[in-house]
């Protein structure tokens, strides 16, 4: 399991230098504005904004493409499915298959929105260390319990992923082949999953003991993250301002245009 979400977080670019708390607010507002866009005339604006942000971030294109691979199946399904079944206005007729205008327009809308939102969120989470993003969320008022849970589970994700890989290797070497569904196969997988839970649980007890020994939970401030008030520089304010204005513009245009 390779997470490597923040593997390009040390590049020097205007987006990387944008302070993460204000970036989080601004880009999230943009993501929601994108989600609201349905008018075809606004799609080019959306694409332009997304491309600009992506270029400014200096993230490699291959990174974006590798991230699109998994949801690519979904896009493909939409493209293949919708033009044939949705709508009444036929624009192409091949006997049983007819391509319909409404379906095509729906495809354009959905795919554009999808790719734009995905790109912006990749820039948002790919241009700062993930820990910093979690800190920003705490500064913005996310509950301490959720922040602590996020930190700890993030910390152990890869470790547990490797644990699972090793256990799967071990049962494979002893001849386990799960090519068909049988009671025994399901039971083996259940035991394997159960073992993963038991091991995680036992590790969590050790983690907790190590944490209380260092003061966790002893008072109300005993949480995992210390956050100081951040200073937001002028350029970050500027970027955030522009982004929020674009978001508001998109919303207003969607409603009143």
């Amino acid at each position: 399991m390779k997470l490597a979400l923040d593997k390009y977080c040390n590049i020097n670019s205007p987006i990387h230098n944008w302070e993460q708390t204000s970036k989080l607010v601004a880009l999230l507002s943009l993501i929601f504005a994108f989600a609201f866009v349905t008018k075809l005339t606004l799609l080019p604006v959306m694409i332009l904004v997304t491309v600009t942000i992506f270029i400014l971030s200096k993230l490699p294109l291959s990174f974006l493409i590798s991230r699109l691979r998994y949801p690519g199946f979904f896009i493909l399904a939409v493209i293949i499915f919708l033009p044939f079944v949705a709508g009444k206005t036929v624009i192409l007729d091949w006997g049983i298959f007819t391509i319909k205008q409404e379906g095509c327009l729906a495809v354009i809308r959905i795919v554009t929105r999808f790719i734009c939102i995905l790109t912006v969120s990749l820039v948002l989470f790919g241009t700062a260390p993930f820990l910093k993003t979690i800190k920003s969320m705490k500064l913005l008022g996310l509950s301490a319990i959720i922040v602590d849970m996020m930190l700890l589970s993030y910390r152990y994700l890869e470790e547990l992923g490797e644990m699972l890989t090793r256990m799967q290797r071990a049962i494979k070497l002893r001849g386990f082949q799960s090519h068909n569904l049988s009671k025994r196969n399901l039971e083996v997988i259940a035991d394997l999953t159960g073992t993963l839970f038991v091991r995680s649980y036992e590790q969590s007890q050790r983690v907790y003991q190590a944490m209380i020994l260092r003061g966790y939970g002893s008072n109300n401030n005993g949480h995992l993250l210390t956050t100081k008030n951040v200073k937001i520089d002028k350029i970050s304010w500027l970027f955030s301002g522009i982004t929020v204005i674009i978001s508001v513009f998109l919303l207003l245009a969607e409603i009143y245009l």
Binding site: M163, R166, M167, A170, D191, T195
Partner: peptide, 10 residues
Amino acid sequence: FQNPDDQLFS
């Protein structure tokens, strides 16, 4: 395996 916990699951 180096760690028996990786191997024992039943």
